[in-house]
Structure formats: structure tokens, C-alpha cells
């Protein structure tokens, strides 16, 4: 279809302008939405728990509290006789830190790739997205596992790097899609015609109009980060095999599920609550950014 409207006078329908909402009002409006408000509150609570709990834990991280798989304490003890409650309280920090950093890394790299591909267009876009497709052929966990094959004990930064790298192509695809809808708009063309610097066009004209969808994507990526971090722990790939870690705890105590279910169920439930909350939050953000000023 031509972009010209060829009625004899003005078309009556005003073309819907999918304008992104202003950042300040965004959070306020978001909090009025039930789904986001719930997800956000629970996420904040879990994060607070992970950050503060180690200071209140009744036992140390690697301290033996009693015989293995005993019913002592709130949640009993684990396969080494460590207190499950204390392990859960200690085990959040690393999961949280790794997830957040990996999400940040994946978002920054992915958004950069996606926006540059969309803005450059043509041949560049084609090549960048083809290479992106190659990385997309690896399921997220697979990319991490393949690299871990040749490493002995992966350091935390390696895990952050791997999870971030597995997010980047997915974020790139999403942000390219969002950016494509923006770079074709006339205000970007207008900036081009004025001769604005390309970097300024991306930073000042394109990116501010993407915040809504990108926030939603970040929430989704955080959910997946938590999942992958926990999964790596569950599969037994962690920097410090003795440290408390929600994912690892499930693996360590799996054989005792019958006798001492809480040793597994406590970390399982925390992860489930955490991921449900972040996902609700992400979806709330997505809905608000889609609906615009509604």
C-alpha cells in the first residue's frame, strides 16, 4: 500500500500513534495494574530475603547442625547434616547476583546488536541477523554446557558471561523487531535530514521510544536467568561445589526426597515463587507498554 492517502480531503481516522509512555508516569501506572503490582511486590520481597537473610541465618553456610536428613529445625537438615533453612537463607545471594548481572549483560549486548541492525538496515541487517540465527540454534542451556565441557570448575564470571551470551541473540531479535517499527517513522527520518549524528539518533530518538518493551523483555530475561542459573546448579556445574546455592541444593538432596523432602522442596519453592513473580512482573510491563496511554 502506498503511504499516501488519496482522499480529496483529510482522512478522518487519526492514525494510531503507538507512542511509548513517559518514563516517570510509567511506573506509577504500572503499579496500578494488579498483575504487575503483585509480581513486583513478591520479587522485591524475595530479593530482600536473599540480600538480608544471611545475616539472620541460625547456622553458617557450611556449618554442620546435626545428623544428615534429620528433622531438626524448621526444615530439617540436608545430606551433610547442614541446616536447610540456613542454607536457603545463604543460597540466594549468588543466584540473584549471577542472574541480575547476566540479564544486564545480555540486555546491553542484545539491544545494541538489535538496534544497530535495525537502524543500519539492508546488507548489515541481513548479515547480523543471519549470524544471530546461528546462536539461536542453541537452546540456552546448551550453549553454556558446550563451553563448560572444556573447563574444570567454572568461575562465577564465566557463568555470568555464558548466560549473558545465551540471552543476547534472543534480546537482539526482540529489540530489532521493536526498533524496526521506530526507525521507519518520520521523526527518525527528520533527524537524518537535519544531519544529526547517527549515535545521537540511536540514543536520543530511537532508544527512548523502546523503554516499555525493553523493560518487559528484561523482566522475562531475568526469569530465564534465574531458571538457567538454578539449572546449572541442579546439574552440578557451580563455581564452589560446597557453597549454598538454591539450584545445587536440589541436586545434593535429591536422593533424600523421600525421607527429608524439605531439603529439596525449600529451594524448589523459593525458585518457583521467584520466577512466577518476575514473570508476572514482566507480563504486566509488556501489557502496559503495548496499551500505551490507555
Amino acid at each position: 500500500m502506498s503511504t499516501e492517502t488519496s482522499g480529496i480531503s483529510g482522512t478522518s481516522g487519526t492514525p494510531a500513534a503507538p507512542s511509548g509512555p513517559a518514563p516517570a508516569g510509567f511506573l506509577r501506572r504500572a503499579l496500578r495494574q494488579k498483575r504487575f503490582a503483585f509480581g513486583f511486590t513478591v520479587t522485591v520481597l524475595v530479593v530482600l530475603f536473599a540480600v538480608v537473610a544471611p545475616f539472620f541465618a541460625p547456622y553458617g553456610e557450611k556449618e554442620t547442625a546435626g545428623p544428615p536428613y534429620a528433622k531438626d529445625g524448621v526444615f530439617g537438615t540436608d545430606y551433610l547434616g547442614q541446616d536447610v533453612l540456613s542454607r536457603v537463607m545463604h543460597g540466594g545471594q549468588s543466584v540473584l547476583a549471577i542472574s541480575v548481572l547476566a540479564t544486564l549483560l545480555g540486555m546491553v549486548v542484545g539491544v545494541l546488536i538489535g538496534v544497530v541492525a535495525a537502524y543500519a538496515g539492508g546488507w548489515w541487517d541481513e548479515v547480523i541477523m543471519r549470524l544471530n540465527d546461528v546462536l539461536l540454534a542453541f537452546p540456552q542451556i546448551l550453549l553454556a554446557l558446550v563451553v563448560l565441557t572444556a573447563l574444570e570448575n567454572p568461575a562465577s564470571w564465566v557463568i555470568i558471561l555464558l548466560i549473558g551470551a545465551s540471552h543476547a541473540p534472543r534480546v537482539a531479535r526482540v529489540s530489532r523487531g521493536v526498533a524496526l517499527g521506530i526507525v521507519s517513522r518520520d521523526f527518525v527520518v527528520a533527524a537524518e535530514a537535519l544531519g544529526e549524528k547517527r549515535s545521537r539518533i540511536i540514543l536520543a530518538e530511537v532508544l527512548p521510544n523502546m523503554t516499555g518493551p525493553l523493560l518487559a523483555e528484561a523482566g522475562l530475561r531475568l526469569t530465564y536467568s534465574i531458571g538457567v542459573v538454578a539449572a546449572l546448579g541442579f546439574l552440578g556445574f557451580a563455581a564452589d561445589p560446597g557453597a549454598a546455592n538454591w539450584g545445587q541444593m536440589m541436586n545434593e538432596n535429591r536422593l533424600g526426597l523421600q525421607t527429608q523432602p524439605w531439603a529439596v522442596m525449600a529451594p524448589v519453592l523459593v525458585i518457583a515463587i521467584f520466577t512466577i513473580a518476575t514473570n508476572l512482573m514482566a507480563d504486566g510491563l509488556a501489557q502496559i507498554s503495548q496499551r500505551g496511554d490507555d
Binding site: A17, R185, D186, F187, A190, N209
Partner: peptide
Amino acid sequence: DRRRMQYIFQNPYLSLNPR
């Protein structure tokens, strides 16, 4: 030259940055 020649677009809903 860029300054002295200005372009105005058809659709004002697309030609102004909503942010």
C-alpha cells in the same frame, strides 16, 4: 544547505518523537 531546506512530513503522528 541542510538548514536552508526543510522537509515537513505527511503524517504528524509519525514525524514528532513522542518522548
